[in-house]
């Protein structure tokens, strides 16, 4: 987001009267341009990664004879490209939603997966799948994601504050409840069992251009999040302070809950419940971008997209198309434990 830094840049130039000012100027320039360069660099990486990932896969497209260009283009455009784009959208959306949720809940451990949004979305999708024969599946996933987020938020909100312990516990409770419902549906479903397993594990193998079209809805949602970065910064100080600084807290919170749930719902309907992207990515990014959401949010989105894109390429190329959710959980859970431990130490 172009909030303020070019102006800061110019002003600093005018103020080069003293030694201290020059030093401050260097500091300002380095901090500002460093973040912009990072953003630009990640965009370039994302494009290069998308191209590379499209050309990497289990079947070596360079080995295919010229005779079979139609087969090659089929693999590239109908199978791999939608899959790469989907994984980028899902990863970026989840990371952006995770960052926004951390600001909204004022808690670095919030994430669509941890607080039960993903499992709510998965349940919504499964209900649609089993009972309504996939009718309005993305909408059902969205409704599930929204309602579980709102329930968790209501449970753990106390005097406008959200305590870590209650957040995690109510998130777990809602996740367990949704899992139980999912198990019930799986038990009842018979033939759809494999489909439901997909929602639980999370993977990209259903990606088609139709799905990409739905997935593109994530982009305007992320843009809405980018419009609220200033409010997110202020909200992370607490509701009362945010209101006294002029933020319409209730409206912003409802907007953020709706948008993050929307993104999560879409992500779930595309790729099932993929965990921990929304937790780990903003965390890593915070070390390089600082906590201000105007950089944290776009950088997280790009990083999340790139990571999931590569993780998916990894699994479909070398791991026999194992669900990518397994990989993210495999790395994410230990990282989550590390974060909890670090909280205890401080």
């Amino acid at each position: 987001m172009a909030q303020g830094d070019p102006v800061l840049f110019q002003r600093s130039f005018k103020n080069t009267t003293g030694d201290g000012n020059i030093r401050a100027l260097h500091k300002t320039i380095s901090v500002v341009s460093y973040r912009w360069v990072l953003l630009l660099f990640l965009s370039v990486i994302a494009i290069i990664s998308a191209i590379v990932c499209t050309f990497v896969g289990p079947s070596n497209i360079f080995g295919i004879q010229f005779m079979e260009t139609s087969k090659m283009s089929l693999i590239l455009t109908q199978i791999r490209l939608p899959r790469v784009i989907t994984s980028f959208i899902v990863g970026g959306g989840l990371a952006a939603a995770g960052a926004a949720m951390q600001g909204l809940f004022r808690n670095q451990l919030a994430d669509p997966y941890v607080i039960g949004t993903s499992s709510g979305g998965a349940l919504g999708a499964a209900i649609s799948l089993v009972i309504f024969h996939s009718f309005l599946l993305p909408f059902a996933a969205f409704c599930g994601a929204c309602s579980s987020t709102i329930i968790v938020y209501i449970i753990c909100r106390q005097n406008g504050k959200v305590a870590v312990e209650t957040l995690l516990l109510s998130g777990i409770a809602i996740s367990l409840f949704c899992s139980a419902m999912l198990s019930f549906l799986m038990y009842k479903s018979g033939n759809d069992l494999h489909q439901i397993m997909f929602w639980l594990m999370g993977g990209m193998w259903n990606a088609t251009w139709d799905k990409v079209r739905i997935g593109l809805l994530v982009i305007p949602a992320i843009v809405i999040l980018l419009f609220t970065v200033r409010e997110l910064d202020i909200l992370s100080l607490g509701d009362d302070e945010a209101s006294s600084l002029g933020v319409n807290t209730e409206r912003v919170k409802i907007l953020l809950l709706a948008v993050t749930s929307f993104i999560t719902g879409i992500a779930v309907s595309l790729a099932g419940s993929i965990g921990f992207i929304g937790l780990i990515v903003p965390h890593m990014v915070r070390y390089v971008s600082g906590s201000s959401f105007r950089f944290l949010l776009p950088i997280s989105a790009l990083t999340g997209g790139i990571i999931l894109m590569w993780a998916d390429t990894l699994t479909r190329t070398f791991m026999n198309d194992m669900p990518v959710g397994i990989i993210t959980a495999f790395f994410g859970a230990p990282f989550f434990i590390y974060l909890i431990r670090r909280r205890m130490w401080t």
């Binding site: 808690n107 670095q108 992370s236 607490g238 302070e241 600082g290 906590s291």
Partner: peptide, 12 residues
């Protein structure tokens, strides 16, 4: 308004 106490969750 200057509040009595304020949360410092993030590294601003």
């Amino acid at each position: 308004v200057v509040p009595q106490e304020s949360m410092r969750t993030f590294d601003f």
